[in-house]
Design a protein around this nucleic acid. Structure first.
Lengths: 238, 238
DNA sequence: CATGGTCAGATTGGATACCAATCTTGTGAA
DNA sequence: TTCACAAGATTGGTATCCAATCTGACCATG
C-alpha cells in the first residue's frame, strides 16, 4: 500500500536501526534498485527521505552513505534528548493522572522481568521504550515525533561504538525518576534524567574495531522477505 | 550550485514562509514543472523534501498541498517551542558568559529601535530572530535545527490566522526574560517564557476570511527572479 | 427535481532509456 | 616514484510512456 519510495525508505530505516547497515556504508542507487527491483528514481526518493531524517548523508555526485555521527553530534543528540525529557518531566509532574503513572510503572515492571530473565535484547528494547512512553504521555504529537527522530539517531551511535550498558542501574534510575516526579520533586527528577543520559553515554566504549561488515543485499534481506509476501504472490500469477 | 531539487524546495519554502503560498494551495507537479522549467521528477523530489519538514502535505494520487495545520497542531507547535526555550533558558542561566548576554541585549536594542520607528516588518523579523538567537546560544546544532523547523511551522499559522501582536509588550517580555535569567531567577524566567508564547498565540485572531488568493506563478515569481539571474542570462544566449 | 451511476479526462506514481557532469581509478610517461 | 591524463562508473537530470486513481460532467432513473 501507499508510496513505493516511502516503503523502501522504511525498509532501509529498519536495516539501519537494526544495525545491519553500518554507518559509512555506501548506499548505491543502482545496487539498491536491483535489490528492490525498482527504478533508480524511487531509490533516490527514498534516500532523500532518509537524508532529511539524518540517517543518511548524500554527497553530491558521490552517492548516499549511512550517516556517521561525529562525537560532537553524539553529545548533541543526548543533550537534546535530555532537554526534551526534562521538559516533559515538568509537564507530567503537574498534569499526569494516576493511570498515566501506572502505565509507567507497568512498563518498568515488564523491563524488570526481562532483566531478571537475562534477556538482554528485550531489556534493551523496553529500556528504549520507556523513554518513548514517557514522552508520549505529554500528549504532544509534534514533540513525540521530534523525540522519535532523535532516538533514531542514537541507533547510529550504537552501531558505531560498542555499548556496554548496566541495564540494572538504568532500570533503577527509571524507577527513581517516576517516583520523584509523582511526589512532585521535579528538580531532583530533572537532575536524575540528566545523569541518566550521561550514564547511557558512558556505556558507549570508543571502540570502532569490532564491527561485522555485511553486504547490502544481506543486510536488507530480512525486511525484504517480511514485506514482500504479497508482491511475491502477485508475481507468481504472471 | 548543488542540487536542483534542493534549490527548488528552498524557493518554494521561501514562498510559503513569506505567505505568498497560502495553506491549502495545491502544488501541482505539472504546473510547477512548467514554472521552474524542470522535469516533474525534480519537482516531486522537492515536494518530498518539504513534506518531510511538514510544510507540505502529500495526498496519494491527489497531489501536494501547502500544509494547513489544525488548531490542535497550532497549540502543539507553541507548546513544543515553549518546552525547547525553557530548556535552553535553564542551560543559559548556568553556562552563558557575559558576551552572550550582551548579544541578547544588543538584539533587543535593535528591535526596540524598529518598534520606535513603527517599522512593523523589521520589528516582527527581529522579534522572531530573538528566539533563534536565544536558542543558538546553547551551542547545540541539532537543537537549533529542530527549533528552526518548528518556527517555520509558525509561519503557516500566521498565514492561516490574521495576527495582531502587541510588539511593544512582546519586546518587554524579551527584556524581562534576559534580566531574570542573568540574575539566576530561572523559574520565573521559565514561567514568563510560557506566558510569552501564550501571548503570541493570543495574537492570532481566528479569522480565516481575509486572505488574498494568489496564483502559483505569481507567488513564486519574486524568489525565482532573485535566484535565476545566472540561468536567465544563460537562457538569453539561446 | 433530486439522486445515483457511469464514463472520459486529468493527475499522480512509477518505468525505461538516454545524456551530461563529475568522481574514481588505473595506466603511462617523466 | 610521482604526476597527469584518459577510461569507466556513478550520480543528477530529461523525455516519454503507461497504469492506477481521482474528478467532474453527463445522463438515466425514481
Amino acid at each position: 500500500m501507499s508510496n513505493l519510495s516511502e516503503r523502501i525508505s522504511e525498509t532501509l530505516k529498519q536495516a539501519i536501526l537494526a544495525q545491519r547497515l553500518y554507518p559509512g556504508t555506501k548506499l548505491g542507487e543502482r545496487e539498491l534498485a536491483e535489490i528492490f527491483d525498482v527504478s533508480r528514481i524511487v531509490i533516490r526518493q527514498a534516500l532523500i527521505r532518509l537524508a532529511n531524517e539524518g540517517l543518511v548523508t548524500i554527497e553530491r555526485n558521490r552517492g548516499a552513505f549511512v550517516t556517521r555521527p561525529s562525537l560532537q553530534e553524539a553529545l548533541e543528540i543526548y543533550d537534546t534528548l535530555t532537554l526534551l525529557e526534562q521538559g516533559v518531566a515538568m509537564q507530567l509532574a503537574e498534569r499526569l493522572d494516576a493511570s498515566g503513572w501506572q502505565k509507567l510503572r507497568d512498563h518498568i515492571a515488564l523491563q524488570a522481568e526481562a532483566v531478571e530473565r537475562n534477556d538482554h535484547k528485550a531489556a534493551d528494547e523496553l529500556g528504549q521504550g520507556f523513554h518513548t512512553l514517557f514522552i508520549s504521555l505529554a500528549g504532544n504529537r509534534l514533540l513525540q515525533d521530534m523525540h522519535a527522530q532523535i532516538v533514531q539517531r542514537t541507533f547510529l551511535l550504537r552501531s558505531l561504538y560498542t555499548s556496554r550498558f548496566d541495564y540494572c542501574n538504568l532500570l533503577n534510575e527509571h524507577t527513581k525518576i517516576v517516583n520523584l516526579l509523582e511526589r512532585g520533586r521535579v528538580k531532583q527528577a530533572m537532575e536524575l534524567i540528566d545523569a541518566h543520559h550521561r550514564h547511557v553515554v558512558r556505556g558507549y566504549v570508543l571502540d570502532t574495531s569490532s564491527y561485522t561488515q555485511m553486504s547490502l543485499k544481506e543486510a536488507i534481506k530480512p525486511d525484504l522477505e517480511q514485506e514482500d509476501t504479497a508482491p511475491a504472490a502477485a508475481a507468481a500469477e504472471t
